[in-house]
Structures are given as C-alpha cells and as structure tokens.
C-alpha cells in the first residue's frame, strides 16, 4: 500500500466514522427528511394513525415537513435521495483531485438521465398534450387529460407533422435516407424565416437606433435653464466611437492598414475591455453555483448550518 492509498484510506475511514457518529450519535442526524401525508383531492393533512377503522384515503401525496411537526413521519425515499445526491456531489468534486471511476460513474448516470428526462418531458408535453389531444381527443380525455373538452373534434391535419417528424428516422436506412432531409428542411426554413425578420428588427435596426446618440447632452439645471451634462456627453461619445471602431474591426473587405488599421485596433481594445467584464461576471456566476453546492452539503445533508 503506497502513501497516497494509505492517506485516502484513512480519510475515508475518518469520514465514515464521522458520518456514523453524526447519524446515530446526534439528535440532528444526517440528511433526515420528514413529510406529512396530504389528501391530494382535499389538500388536508392526514394525521398518522394506527387505527384500522380510519377511512382509507385513495390519493395521498407527501409534503415536506419539519422534524418536530407532530404529524410528520420519516421519509425513506427522501432521506435516501439526499444521501445519494450528496454522494454524487462528492463523486463530481472528486474530479478536482484526479479523474477517477466515481466521477465517470456520475458522468455516465447524468448522460442517461438527461437524455431520458428530455424524452419523457417531450412525450407528455408534446406528443400527448399536443398531438394526441388533436388527433384523438377522446382517448386523451379518458386516459391522460380529463379536462380535454368533451366536444373537441379530431383534427387530422396534425397527421402531417407527425409523418414529417417520423421521416427523420429514414436517415437510419441508407436507401431512403434522403427522405430524412424533409423534416430538417421544414425546421430550418421556419427558423430562417422567423429569424430573418426578428434579428433584423431587434438586433440590427433597434441597435443602430440606440447608437445614434447626441454627442453633446444638455440637462435641466436647478435654476430652470439647461446645462451641459458632461458625464452623459462623454458616455455617448465613447459609445458611438467604440461601436464604430468595433464594426471597423469586423469589416474584413478592407485591409486593416493606416487609419482603418488604427481604428480597428481601437475596436480590439474595446472588445478586450468587454471580454474582461464578461470574465469577471462569469466568475461571479460560477462561484455562486459552488456556494449553492456547498450549502447543500453542509446544510441540507450534514446539517451544520441552521438559518
């Protein structure tokens, strides 16, 4: 056993002993989750009872509750969930030390879960809530969506997008793979048509309009007249010059030499300042995310922090 293996064995042992003590030796426990039973149809809490004569409730849902709530019961699934979530969090963090099997395991799980999640969501939200409701409203009402209007009529026009969508699987059969281009063309055409107008309006015309600014700004003074607003004037001048210089840098039809070269260099500087700010703001976001994960480990799981 080398030094590194010894070190990690001791660390794991200490960690396990600590978790065992925290779980069984303290009142707080680790990741303990409690719930109350609620009648889904009435929204009323069902008190825990051992009385066999109590009326059975058909639809029970579980709501999170505090441990000291008299109606709270311990939840195995949620407690196990917190533990699994914590261990998976540690698996991912283990990558910081070195790539390892725990990290790869968590990574494999997330690839499968993400793809499955996407398929399930779209199955219920699009294929059932949009397609089945249109093609077979009675089936949808009976099996999935009871509030579908009773007088809803089937709209067989929706067979077209379903067939078009299914044609994408032709790509898996070499002989008819060309048919797989049709749905792609529909998606690309719709996006291109929409974007052409909306980008031109919001990101071109309106942005040009926002850049056409007065270079000398006067504002109302305390005496009722108007006075030069120096700071706003400087801001406007900087904006106009910066936008023009950046656009010059992006204009590749003219060689960047002489005056054009100098202006485009100014454009590069403006972009560098912009990227510097982006870097700082990105750092801010990532640190917040790390804070959230550590709050989960030390608050929700280990229970060290109680607000």
């Amino acid at each position: 056993m080398n030094r590194e293996t010894r070190f990690w064995t001791v660390m794991f042992l200490c960690g396990s002993l600590f978790l065992a003590y925290q779980s069984f030796g303290t009142n707080r426990g680790v990741g303990q989750q409690f719930v109350v039973r609620v009648d889904a149809t009435t929204g009323k809490i069902i008190p825990p009872t051992t009385d066999a004569a109590a009326p059975a409730v058909k639809t029970v849902i579980y709501e999170p509750a505090a441990k000291d709530d008299p109606e709270a019961i311990w939840s195995f699934s949620r407690t196990a969930g917190i533990w699994i979530a914590a261990l998976l969090t540690l698996c991912i963090f283990s990558y910081l030390y070195r790539d390892n099997v725990c990290y790869k395991l968590a990574e494999s799980i997330i690839v499968g879960v993400s793809a499955g999640y996407w398929i399930v969501t779209n199955y219920w939200e699009v294929l059932i809530a949009k397609v089945l409701v249109k093609l077979a409203p009675d089936v949808a009402r009976y099996a999935f969506l009871p509030d579908t209007p009773a007088d809803a009529k089937a709209d067989y026009l929706y067979v077209v997008p379903v067939v078009l969508g299914c044609m994408v699987f032709c790509r898996l059969i070499p002989k008819i793979s060309w048919m797989g281009r049709w749905p792609l063309a529909f998606v690309v055409g719709t996006t291109a048509g929409l974007k052409l107008i909306l980008f031109l309006n919001a990101d071109f015309v309106r942005q040009v309009r926002s850049t056409v600014l007065p270079l000398v700004v006067f504002s109302a003074s305390a005496s009722g007249g108007s006075e030069l607003d120096l700071i706003q004037s400087i801001k406007n001048i900087v904006i106009v010059i910066s936008v023009l210089s950046c656009l010059t840098y992006f204009y590749f039809s003219v060689e960047h030499k002489g005056l054009v070269g100098r202006i485009s260099r100014l454009g590069i500087w403006v972009l560098m300042i912009s990227f510097g700010a982006s870097f700082a703001l990105t750092v801010m976001g990532r640190i917040t995310l790390l804070t959230m994960r550590l709050q989960f480990l030390f608050d929700d799981w280990l229970g060290f922090v109680r607000i």
Partner: peptide, 17 residues
C-alpha cells in the same frame, strides 16, 4: 431532484475551481 439536479449543478460548479 436527487440525480439530475445535484450532478449537473456540481459539474458547472467545478468551473469555479
């Protein structure tokens, strides 16, 4: 809640380091 959310958010949190 217990698989998707912790894994994806921790993966992004790694970027802080």
């Amino acid at each position: 809640q217990y698989l998707f959310s912790p894994i994806v958010s921790t993966m992004f949190a790694l970027l802080a380091f």
